[in-house]
């Protein structure tokens, strides 16, 4: 699996991609520093809704992961180098898992560091809140990565479809229709954050911590299995 992992890391770590991810990941931190220094600093609730939920969990994390995870297979399918892997005498999950891990390895640090710094600055070093934000950000990266790796295997339009999912489904429908949140990775991540620090982030409409953990595991494993299944059944170009 190491060969596929290292190959994917190298494929995904282009200079421009890293630069864009760095800029995106820095935005919440900069925003937190600037707003907290202003006279009209937002309340915790306002900050959580505007920056942590909307900006970090709702936009930056999924966009960064989409750009990386969707390319994990899509680039190989497009370049038609994927047969180098699929013609190897190894189980298909030995291809999918390292690709997924490479996507998480690459996207994770950007989002996790961004979440850690943003929370640390915003909550004045409150360890519980910082851990809640950071862990939920990492969980969000893993969940989005699992979903978008699968998407990159299923369609050549993964970026477009992924954007529609992030903007329309999670950003729009899930904001109005509570049932839509059951199919929203963003809301699983936010529910984890709320569950880990109810004192600070208590919002009744979200999943409980237990339900969020179970749902997250099911979604992560589900997309992983779907990717393995897809790789076994698809026609390799």
């Amino acid at each position: 699996m190491g060969a596929v992992y290292l190959l994917t890391l190298r494929q995904l770590s282009g200079r421009w991609r890293i630069l864009i991810m760095t800029v995106l990941a820095a935005m919440p931190v900069i925003f937190a520093v600037l707003t907290l220094r202003s006279k009209d600093a937002p309340s915790v609730m306002e900050f959580e809704v505007a920056v942590l939920s909307a900006m970090l969990a709702g936009s930056i994390a999924p966009l960064v992961v989409l750009a990386i995870a969707a390319a994990a297979f899509a680039n190989e399918v497009e370049d038609r180098t994927i047969a180098n892997l699929t013609l190897s005498p190894i189980p298909r999950w030995h291809i999918v898992v390292p690709k997924l891990l490479a996507a998480i390895t690459l996207a994770g640090p950007f989002i996790v560091v961004s979440a850690l710094l943003t929370a640390h600055v915003s909550f004045l070093g409150d360890a519980t809140a910082t851990i809640a934000v950071t862990v939920s950000a990492l969980a969000g990266v893993a969940l989005y990565a699992s979903a978008f790796v699968w998407l990159g295997l299923v369609t050549t339009q993964a970026i477009g479809i992924g954007l529609l999912y992030i903007v329309l489904w999670e950003g729009f429908f899930a904001g109005f229709v509570s049932g839509a949140r059951l199919l929203s990775i963003r809301h699983y991540a936010i529910a984890l954050m709320h569950g880990m620090d109810e004192r600070r982030f208590a919002l009744a409409e979200h999943l409980s911590l237990g339900a969020a953990i179970v749902t997250s595991i099911v979604v992560f494993a589900g997309f992983l299995l779907l990717s393995v299944r897809r790789l076994r059944r698809m026609d390799i170009p």
Binding site: R10, R80, T81, A83, S88, P89, R232, P237
Partner: peptide
């Protein structure tokens, strides 16, 4: 089809000439 252990006995060179250029 879907028989990875058998692929150990196959050597396949496709018509597509794309390579991992960075390697």
């Amino acid at each position: 089809r879907d028989n990875p252990p058998l692929y150990r006995r196959l050597g396949v060179m496709s018509e597509h000439e794309t390579v991992y250029g960075f390697m």
